[in-house]
Every structure is written in C-alpha cells, then in structure tokens.
Design a protein around this nucleic acid. Structure first.
Ligand SMILES: [Mn+2]
Ligand SMILES: [Mn+2]
Ligand SMILES: [Zn+2]
Ligand SMILES: [Zn+2]
Lengths: 126, 126
DNA sequence: AATATAACGCAACCTTGTTGCATTAACAAA
DNA sequence: TTTGTTAATGCAACAAGGTTGCGTTATATT
C-alpha cells in the first residue's frame, strides 16, 4: 500500500521531484537528505510513492535505482512506460517521451520493456 | 586484458556457454560451480572473457549481471549489441536477434542502448 | 486530550560484486 | 624433464546498495 499520512519525509521528497524535472537516484537522495532522514525512510517513501502511481522507478547504469515523476498514473494503473536517457558525462538521467515500436516476437508474451539509452546529453554534447 | 592461460576455470566456463545457448547469470554460475571454483575466480574469468569478445554482459531484472556468448566480436570490437528477453515465469534469459531502430534524439549523442524485454517465453507462454 | 497506528530511526543484516595478498599452476625456456 | 616466470587462483576482508525487525514517535481521527 502507498502513502497514508503526509509526513515531513513525504513532503520533502515530493518537492524534490516537483522542482527537478529529471530523474533522481535513490543513492543521490540519500546523499542529499541522509542527514535529515534515515535512508530506510527514504527507500520506504519512494517505494510507497511508486505504489501510489506518483513516481516510477527503473534501473540505470550499474543497476542503480532511479525514480521519476509519473504522468497520469494511478495506484491501480501504471501506464506511462517509456525509455530513459542517461548521460555518460554528467550522469544526468531523464525520461524520453517517445515509445519504440517492437517487432512481434512469435510465441512470446511481452509484459514489460525497459530501454535505457546512454550517451551525451544536450549539455554535454558539443 | 583477457585470458592468457587455458586454465580449468576458463575451460569449464567456456563449456558452460557452449552447451547452453541461453544467457547465464554470474549468480547462477556461482551457485552451480561455487564448490569447484571460488566466486572471485568466476567473476574474474567472466570479466576476461568479455574483454576478449567471447562473452558479452548485460543487466537483467533487479540489476543482476548476465553473460551470453558473442557472435563475431573481438577484443577490439564489440559489435553485436542486441535486446535481451527475460521470462518472468521461469527466469530464462536469451538474446534477441533483431535490433530496434531508435528515433533521432536532437542534440544528444547515443552511445549505448540496452533493451530488456520481459514477459513469457515460448515454454511458459500457453 | 486521548487513542490508534502509520511512519520513523536505528542497528543489524543481506546480496552481489570487488580488492589485496600469499600461494599455486600454466607454459615456455633451458 | 626440470626450472623459472608470472598469470591465475583461493581466501578473507571489504564495499555498496538495499532490506528487515523492532521499539519509539508523530499524524490523524474521535
Ligand atoms: Mn508511471
Ligand atoms: Mn558481443
Ligand atoms: Zn550530460
Ligand atoms: Zn519461461
């Protein structure tokens, strides 16, 4: 189940995702807020916000867990699935708005697709 | 640098990938061979075989590291990059032979793309 | 204000993977 | 075949990201 009480931690984490439009890793949030909140709390709040359809998560480089705001998802329906882009120079990660059409794979049922594109972002691309 | 001496561990691991056509996780190899070889050895041999262009690696569900045989790669050129499919029922992972065309992303340079498709494999798809 | 319990902090733990170092074994030269 | 070089191994200790259990705190309801 998701968030029930509007605690300080929920408030601060939500603000973090509302002021930044990029994705944020759990690791970065702990580095940034670890003095204010215990890392267990941060992991738990992120998890609950994902349950609520407010955030979605995905794995970046080296298997690190990243979170970003959802668009039009609910606790019952997580529909906004999309590729993510990770800059190999500055580390920045963001959501891409397009979807890639996959070819039919015979006799297999596709349930999830996760696409991570790595390269140089607008800032780092000369 | 890659493998220089044909040791027992190299031999056994290579056979593992030659008799199975699927991908194998480092974790599974350690579970299977951990009595015969130290896990450190297994990790190191896999790493070297990848350097040699004999194996390629990628991250599966939950950030676990998987390895599979390369086709036509060398130590200097790792060209066979492709999507992977992980069955959510039986856990089996294999390489997909197609490539997905990505749209141009303005002002960004794409260097790597990793696509993991999850669902039900031929065996588990009813 | 009193109560119920969701959320928290803390410590201890788990898992995958890595590092340093002494020992062993592959391989080629003698 | 013996010897010498050093790549590869085993072991123990560590690292990092994340999880769990439990006693305490604070939010929300009455
Ligand atoms: Mn979403
Ligand atoms: Mn390859
Ligand atoms: Zn960048
Ligand atoms: Zn399957």
């Amino acid at each position: 189940m998701g968030v029930i009480r509007k605690t300080k931690a929920v408030e601060v984490l939500l603000k973090e995702f509302n002021t930044n439009s990029v994705a944020i890793s759990a690791k970065a949030l702990i580095e940034q807020l670890g003095d204010t909140f215990n890392k267990t709390t941060i992991y738990r709040v992120l998890d609950k916000l994902e349950d609520d359809g407010i955030l979605h998560s995905f794995l970046g480089k080296e298997g690190l867990k990243w979170y970003a705001k959802c668009n039009g998802c609910t606790s019952t329906e997580h529909n906004d699935v999309h590729p993510h882009f990770q800059c190999l120079s500055c580390g920045r990660v963001d959501c891409l708005t397009f979807t890639v059409p996959l070819p039919k794979i015979p006799n297999r049922k596709i349930e999830v697709t996760q696409l991570l594109i790595q390269g140089k972002c607008e800032e780092c691309f000369v």
